[in-house]
Amino acid sequence: MMNPTLRKKDYKGAIDALLRLQETYNLRVSDIADGHIGRNKTSAPLQATDCFDIGLKAWQVSTSENVCEWMAEAEDRLTKDTNYLLPDILTQSIECSMQMEQEEEEEEEEEEEEQFEDVRALLSRVLKLDPDNVYANQKESHLRRKLKTDMTSKNYKALCRGEDIGVQSATNMFCRYNHNNKPRLFIRPAKEEMLSNEPPVVLFHDILTDTEIDLLIAQAKFKLKRARTIPEGNAPAVESKIRISSIAWLYNLGDKMGLHSVLPRVQDYTGLSTDPQSTEKFQVANYGLGGFYNYHVDDDVTGIEPDKRLATVLFYLSEVEAGGRTVFPKLGISIPPIKGSAAVWYNYLKNGDPNFDMLHAGCPVLLGEKWASNLWIFEYGQEFRRRCGLTRDDIY
């Protein structure tokens, strides 16, 4: 039963967030119901009605096994006041148990990655004999898409939990003080942590001061609105379940007292122009419990922006009690939010093509809240700062 102090939309959003956290971080139903989130104990145990509502929602977004677990938890928490729910709980338990039987049968027939090898070998033989074979081409394309999608999702969840998926080689990682031959950085050099060499992903530590962070959040707090995403085809921006956060846009940051040195500092650190015509306005984002941004790339495929988003600078404006990492599923990179730091990467290769290896995501916030800020640097103005490759193969 919905809490009377909550709007229906907020209540549904809270249930979505709990199920998202459960799936991403492998949380147990009993722990969530008791108010245990990870290693932390909250003061919000769930009632039978809450567990029942979550179980109903799980039909849409989760497995039947998870539905059964929530229904069992709801039954365990019944009281005299909520005993009227028992027939509905038992009905849903029967339904999910029957569905589980069916899913188990399908799982036995499901093709796992290692089982694909024989099929792909046969398809390869067919295509070698007949490259235009329609059936073989369709099947090969289907298997390739399935493997790619499954691996991206698997890597995303593992990286959100802080697990090492063994993609990045530690030999390419290093930390250093770097002055980039900039006078200001001879006094206070950049603290640079190289997370990936090809493609380059850098984490700059202490790029923002606490005072600057407080000013950014203060400027944004009263302008926050629900974040939207732009569908394909240049349609108007809409609220979307793949991005749960609130954002605010800050204009003319260089004119604001206490923040005028941020853009010049970014220019010194990255070597890229941050003149007004070379950067988008600052975007400040707030993620509450369960807030996240599903995996995506930052290149402007809609053509709405006046220029390509050549590079992304992602500032972390707060620590997060648990969750909230930035992860790159194809690169095996997982960045915990460190207050005052900024992650920087290129969205385009030197040959001008989008770099889809830079697929990244903001993981769900497990505890606390997350403040972050994006600055996108356009291609305009970077002609002599990040030169194009001389050949199509010169990409980094």
Results as ranks from 00 to 15, higher is better:
Val61Gly: 02
Arg176Asn: 02
Trp345Arg: 00
Glu198Cys: 06
Leu216Ser: 03
Cys363Ile: 07
Leu21Gly: 00
Lys370Val: 15
Asp206Cys: 11
Asp300Ser: 01
His205Asn: 14
Asn133Val: 06
Pro329Ser: 10
Gly35Glu: 05
Lys330Met: 12
Leu46Val: 11
Ala227Ser: 15
Phe222Trp: 07
Lys241Val: 14
Tyr316Val: 13
Gly381Pro: 06
Val320Pro: 02
Gln115Leu: 15
Lys9Ser: 13
Lys281Asp: 15
Pro131Val: 00
Ile377Phe: 03
Arg309Ala: 05
Tyr25Val: 08
Asp353Phe: 12
Asp53Arg: 01
Met98Val: 10
Ile242Cys: 00
Glu109Cys: 06
Thr274Asp: 08
Arg243Ile: 04
Thr302Trp: 07
Tyr380Lys: 15
Cys160Arg: 02
Arg161Lys: 00
Asp53Asn: 10
Phe315Trp: 03
Glu192Met: 15
Gly324Ile: 03
Thr79Val: 08
Asp132Thr: 13
Met194His: 11
Ile244Ala: 12
Ile37Leu: 11
Leu250Ile: 15
Gly368Ser: 02
Ser153Tyr: 10
Val266Glu: 01
Gly13His: 00
Phe315Asp: 02
Asp88Gly: 01
Asn181Tyr: 10
Ile94Arg: 09
Val119Ala: 09
Val327Glu: 01
Thr279Gln: 00
Glu198Gly: 03
Ile37Met: 15
Lys9Trp: 11
Gly332Lys: 03
Lys223Cys: 12
Ser334Glu: 04
Pro200Asp: 01
Cys160Met: 05
Leu224Val: 13
Lys182Cys: 15
Thr82Arg: 06
Thr63Phe: 04
Thr149Tyr: 09
Ser278Asp: 07
Ala190Asn: 03
His36Asn: 09
Glu69Gln: 14
Pro276Asp: 06
Asn66Asp: 04
Asn3Met: 05
Phe378Gln: 09
Cys68Leu: 09
Met100Asp: 04
Asp164Thr: 10
Ile54Glu: 01
Ser278Thr: 09
Lys8Glu: 14
Leu263Ile: 08
Thr171Met: 09
Gln22Asp: 06
Gln92Ala: 06
Tyr177Met: 10
Met71Ile: 10
Glu280Cys: 01
Asn172Cys: 13
Ala361Cys: 11
Val262Ser: 03
Leu367Lys: 14
Thr209Trp: 02
Glu104Ser: 07
Ala220Asp: 10
Gly324Ala: 04
Asp307Gly: 08
Glu104Asn: 10
Asp298Asn: 06
Arg387Trp: 14
Asp298Ala: 05
Phe328Ile: 05
Arg20His: 08
Ala72Leu: 15
Ser318Thr: 15
Lys128Asp: 05
Gly362Ala: 15
Asp300Ala: 00
Leu259Met: 13
Gln99Met: 07
Gly362Val: 06
Lys330Leu: 03
Ser273Thr: 06
Thr171Ser: 11
Ala220Met: 08
Leu19Val: 03
Lys221Glu: 12
Ser62Met: 05
Gly288Pro: 11
Asp210Ile: 12
Pro183Cys: 01
Asp34Asn: 15
Gln283Ile: 11
Glu107Tyr: 14
Tyr396Leu: 12
Ser196Asp: 00
Pro199Ser: 01
Ile213Ser: 12
Val313Asp: 02
